[in-house]
Computed example of a mutant assay.
Amino acid sequence: MKMASSMGGMFPGQQPPAQHPVGGPGGPGQPGFPSTANRGQGNNTLVDELEASFEACFASLVSQDYVNGTDQEEIRTGVDQCIQKFLDVARQTECFFLQKRLQLSVQKPEQVVKEDVSELRNELQRKEMLVQKHLSKLHHWQQVLEDVSVQHRKPSDLPPPGPLTFLEQASASLPPAPLKPN
Rank of each mutant, 00 (worst) to 15 (best):
M1T: 06
A4F: 00
A4N: 10
S6E: 10
M7K: 01
G8E: 08
G9P: 00
G9K: 01
M10Q: 05
F11I: 03
F11L: 12
P12D: 05
Q14D: 05
Q14P: 00
Q15M: 12
P16L: 10
A18E: 10
Q19A: 14
P21L: 05
P25W: 01
G26R: 01
G27P: 02
G29T: 06
T36M: 08
T36E: 11
N38Y: 00
N38D: 13
R39Q: 13
R39S: 05
R39H: 03
G40K: 04
Q41D: 15
Q41H: 10
T45H: 01
D48Q: 13
D48E: 11
E49H: 02
E49P: 00
E49T: 02
E51L: 12
A52L: 04
S53D: 03
E55F: 09
A56R: 10
F58G: 14
A59R: 13
A59E: 12
A59N: 14
L61Y: 01
Q64V: 11
D65P: 01
D65F: 09
V67Q: 10
G69N: 09
D71E: 07
D71N: 14
Q72Y: 04
E73I: 09
E73V: 11
I75G: 03
G78E: 04
G78W: 01
V79E: 06
C82S: 12
Q84I: 02
K85W: 01
F86E: 01
L87P: 01
V89R: 08
R91D: 09
R91L: 05
Q92S: 10
Q92H: 04
T93I: 01
T93P: 03
T93W: 05
E94F: 07
L98Q: 13
Q99A: 06
Q99M: 08
Q99P: 00
Q99D: 07
R101I: 02
L102C: 05
L102R: 11
Q103S: 09
L104Q: 13
Q107W: 02
P109V: 05
P109M: 07
E110V: 05
Q111A: 13
K114G: 02
E115Q: 09
E115I: 06
D116K: 06
D116L: 11
V117P: 01
E119A: 15
L120V: 09
R121L: 14
R121N: 15
E123F: 07
E123Y: 06
L124E: 11
L124R: 13
Q125S: 15
Q125W: 06
R126Y: 05
M129A: 15
M129I: 04
Q132N: 14
Q132G: 14
K133I: 00
H134M: 08
S136Q: 14
L138D: 03
H139M: 13
W141A: 02
W141D: 07
Q143C: 05
Q143L: 08
L145R: 12
L145C: 08
D147C: 10
D147Q: 15
V148I: 12
V150W: 11
Q151N: 09
R153P: 02
P155C: 02
P155A: 12
L158M: 14
L158R: 13
P159T: 09
P160I: 04
P160K: 10
P161M: 07
P163S: 06
T165P: 00
F166E: 11
F166T: 15
L167F: 12
L167M: 12
L167W: 08
Q169T: 12
Q169E: 15
S171I: 13
S173N: 07
S173G: 06
L174F: 08
P176T: 08
A177L: 12
A177T: 12
P178Q: 08
P178N: 03
P181Q: 07
P181W: 05
P181A: 12
N182D: 14
